[in-house]
Nucleic acid binder design. Structure first.
Length: 265
DNA sequence: ATGACTCATTACATGAGA
C-alpha cells in the first residue's frame, strides 16, 4: 500500500501532472493540499476515470484539501474537532479548508495544510501555532481512545524542524518556518505519541520537499523540508520505505512542492 | 543575460504563498 502527500499548488493548473503521477507511482491514497479550487468545480470525473474516489474540501481560491483513494474512502471529515478558525480583517471567523480526514483501506488519512504564519508578529502566526497545538491535542485523544489506531497525519506543515531543513538558516532569521515556537508546536505531534516517519527513513541532511519559484531556487537546490508524515505507532511500524519525489519539481508547470510517499506493508 | 516566480480572481492589479 502506498500513501502519498503533495502540496499541488492549484489542482486545475496541474491536473495532468497529478493523474500522471498517480499512475506512474502506483499511489493508492493521495493527500493533496492547496488545491485552490471550490468544491463545485473539483474535477471528480478525472479521478473517477483513473479509478479513484475523491473527497475534497474547498471554499474558494485559497487553501483546499483532498484525499483521493483507489482502496476505499469512508467517513470523510472536513475539519479536525478542535481546528481553530481565523478571521480575515473585516470578515467573520471561518474554519478554513485546511484539513480533510478519511478512512482508506483501514488507515485514517488526514490531509493537512498548516497555516503559513506570514510573519512572527502577524496574527496568522498565532493562528498557525493554535492550529498545530489543537491538532496535537486531538491526535493524543485519538490514541488514548485506541492505542492501536492506524492514523497518518500528512501534508504541508510549513515548519522546518532542523536548521539543515532550510538551505540557509540565516536567511530565515526573524522570519517564519524556523522559530522556536513553530518547532515546539510541531514537536507537540511527537509529544502526542506520533512518529515522523519520513525523517526515520530519510535522515540525510538537506533533503528538501519545497523550492521557491523565485531566484532559481531549484536549480541551485536551495529548498526547504516542510512536508511530513506523522504516523500513529501501529502504522509507523508498517512503513517500509519513504520517498521524496524530487523529479516532480522539474520541468515547466511544476508545483513548488514535490510528493512525499510512504510504502506500507 | 535579450531575464529575473506562480497561482486565482465578478482579473488587466492584487493577495497570497514560502
Amino acid at each position: 500500500m502506498r500513501i502519498a502527500t503533495w502540496n499541488v499548488n492549484s489542482l486545475r493548473a496541474r491536473l495532468d501532472r497529478t493523474l500522471n503521477y498517480l499512475r506512474e507511482h502506483q499511489v493508492d491514497v493521495l493527500a493533496l493540499q492547496e488545491t485552490k479550487v471550490k468544491d463545485e468545480v473539483f474535477p471528480d470525473g478525472a479521478f473517477e476515470e483513473a479509478g479513484y474516489q475523491a473527497a475534497h474540501h474547498g471554499f474558494n481560491q485559497w487553501n483546499g484539501v483532498a484525499v483521493v483513494s483507489r482502496i476505499g474512502l469512508e467517513d470523510v471529515r472536513t475539519a479536525f474537532p478542535g481546528q481553530p478558525d481565523f478571521a480575515k480583517p473585516g470578515e467573520a471567523p471561518q474554519v478554513e479548508a485546511r484539513a480533510l480526514g478519511a478512512d482508506c483501506g483501514g488507515v485514517t488519512v488526514w490531509s493537512l495544510y498548516v497555516p503559513h504564519g506570514r510573519g512572527r508578529e502577524d496574527p496568522h502566526m498565532a493562528y498557525k501555532l493554535r492550529f498545530l497545538h489543537a491538532l496535537a491535542d486531538d491526535a493524543a485523544a485519538w490514541l488514548a481512545r485506541n492505542p492501536s489506531a492506524q492514523i497518518a497525519l500528512v501534508g504541508d506543515f510549513n515548519v522546518a524542524p532542523l536548521d539543515t531543513d532550510v538551505w540557509d538558516p540565516q536567511a530565515f532569521e526573524g522570519l517564519t518556518h524556523t522559530s522556536a515556537a513553530e518547532r515546539a508546536a510541531l514537536d507537540a505531534l511527537t509529544g502526542a505519541g506520533f512518529r515522523e516517519v519520513t525523517r526515520e527513513h530519510l535522515p540525510a541532511e538537506r533533503l528538501y520537499t519545497q523550492w521557491d519559484y523565485q531566484q532559481l531556487r531549484f536549480a541551485k537546490d536551495q529548498g526547504m523540508r516542510i512536508d511530513f508524515a506523522f504516523c500513529s505507532p501501529a502504522l509507523a511500524e508498517r512503513v517500509t520505505s519513504v520517498s521524496i519525489v524530487r523529479d516532480e519539481r522539474k520541468g515547466k508547470g511544476a508545483s513548488d512542492h514535490v510528493p512525499v510517499e510512504l510504502t506500507i506493508e
